[in-house]
Amino acid sequence: MLSFFNILLLLQETETRVDLMKRAAVNPDLSKFLVIGALLFIIGVAGVLTRRNIIVIFMSIELILNAANLNFIAFSRYLSAMGNVNAVAGQIFAVFVIVVAAAEAAIGLGIVIALYRNKETIWVDEIDLLKW
């Protein structure tokens, strides 16, 4: 099945821009992975900056970490395709990111619990003790 498209491609000698785009869309490459990762990252950052609910902010932070993971895995795949013997390092990195994210989520939610017990609120704009 894969070879079908490849042969189609090979039959075409010249490529226009639209063709390039079509090929890019049909054959997503490393850059597409990275784009998706960047978009997820930005969505996560926007969530951190805009939401009032502290739990949602945490979830946005998980989005960010996830996007970073995606980047790692994408590069690992790319490098293994390129023949780099250390390509598996990306996946190792991703493992540890997941570990850290889990630990961080646990601690952070513990803090949220403690904060909620003291201030009875989960809205971050009400937690402004450091305000001048």
Binding site: V45, I57, V124, D125, I127, K131, W132
Partner: peptide, 17 residues
């Protein structure tokens, strides 16, 4: 300068961004 100390964490995050 005082206005920068809002106590609002997301302002600080915005600054980081």
């Amino acid at each position: 300068f005082r206005a920068a100390q809002t106590g609002f964490t997301q302002n600080y995050a915005l600054v980081m961004v």
